[in-house]
Every structure is written in structure tokens, then in C-alpha cells.
Design a protein around this nucleic acid. Sequence first.
DNA 1: AACGGGTCCAACCGCCGTGGA
DNA 2: GTCCACGGCGGTTGGACCCGT
Length: 246
Amino acid sequence: MGRAPCCEKVGLKKGPWSFEEDQILIKFIQLNGHSNWRALPKKAGLLRCGKSCRLRWTNYLRPDIKRGDFTNEEEETIINLHQLLGNRWAAIAARLPGRTDNEIKNVWHTHLKKRLNQNQNSTNQTKQNKNDNNQLYDQPPCSSEIKSDGEENVDRCTKNDNNNDKDIKLVELTFADDFLKNLLSEEEIFENDWNLEKDCVMIKDVDQSSKEVEEMSSCSSSDIDIMDFWRNVIMRNGELQEINII
DNA sequence: AACGGGTCCAACCGCCGTGGA
DNA sequence: GTCCACGGCGGTTGGACCCGT
């Protein structure tokens, strides 16, 4: 036996909302709130599924929704948060007041992903050009991988004790700390199981696949290419170039 | 003007987590 | 512990719109 549909589908309207329907929904919610989405359309006199009403309200009719193009700052924030959080659009939207997860998802798929790919291509080209001169660029990111059998691969960056790596880690720590504190509340960091430790940024992967990256004495990582991410952050602040010169 | 391909975005679908009975 | 209703979320899609030919 399959799951019961969220509402009776027969006789319910689908597709784009009319102005009149919007007005009915707005007025009803203003008067009564939306404690029960399932019952709402019946009470409001709408021939819509409760789910459809909720979506229309949260993605379009809510008074605090900001319409119009995304600013550069907003786009940068989306890109950075996406690198941290992945496709967790709701979590990203929570950091962008007035923007909905749906809107962010759309912007990501229509604009930002393409732009990022283009940037990546040009970055790869730059890396190629620097090939023989810059050993740091040659290093794979400081990330570990989970092999299929569960054993963890720790790359040389993690184990290497040379001073350059320590300097880089210090800078990473500073920016990681500042960046997360700027963007995320303490509760959120806690909820995501992110630990900022003194010698390294520790990120434990507790996603649905339930592969949890074990804590390591130095840099650990998750399936996110975290070191590439921090490198980007540092690059934006013009710090990594200095380190590379050292 | 007509057509076709690409782009964009609102809306839908189905799955998942949670809380109450 | 199990079932069910519900809200929330992310992936996908339909169709309007745009633009080049």
C-alpha cells in the first residue's frame, strides 16, 4: 500500500496562481495564520492542495520576500555557503534574508554554477601556466578520502610537518574562524557538527550516508573539498599569494 | 513573420524527519 | 515500537519568454 496523497487530487486546481487566489490566501493567513496547511485551503475556500498553498506563500507571497536580482554580495555568499553546505538550499536561504530556497536553487542552477565552471576552467588554465614555478599549487588539496572499504586515505598535506604547511594552517584557521563566525551562528555551527579547534578546522561529515570522518590530529576533512574552499577564501583576501612567495 | 533552441522560474512531485496517538 | 499526518526539503519539470537565424 502506497503512501496516501497529501490531499485529494480530484477537483483541485494546479498550475500558476491567479491574482484572486493570491489575495484569498494572503487575507486568510493575515487573519488566521497558517497553523494547519492541510486544512487551510478548505477553510479559505481555495481549490488548492495545502502543500501548494504553503509553497505559494513561502516562495512568493510572504511579506518579507525580497524580489529582484541578486546582488554581488548575495551571489558570493551563495557560492561560499554552497561550498560549505552543498545543496542544502534551505540552510543557505536562512543566511540570506528575504530570499527563498527555491529562488536560490534557481539562481544556482541558472547562473552561479555556470559562472563557477567558467572560473574553474580559467583557474585550471592559470594553474597550468604556473606549473613549474609553484609547488604549493601542485599539491592536491589537503583532504582525505574515504575509500570504498571505509579506510581513510590521508594525503601528504595532512601528514607533512614542514613549516610552510603550519603557516598556511594558521592563516586558514584565522579565516576559517572569522568566516564561519561571520556567516553562521554558534548554534548553527554546533548543529552542523563543525568544530573549530586550535590547530585546525575540523569538519565531521555526518550526512545521510552516515560515513563519519574520524577526527584526526591535524587537518581532517569531509567529502567537501574543504582546503580548496579555504584557499579560495584566502585568495580573495590576497593572503595566499604572499604565502606562496615564501 | 515564423521557427527552433536556449534560458529562466514558478510550481509540482516524492521522499524524509518529526511528533503525536 | 508502530502507524499516520504533517511540514519541510531538494530535484525536476512545464511553459512562458527571449534571441538568433
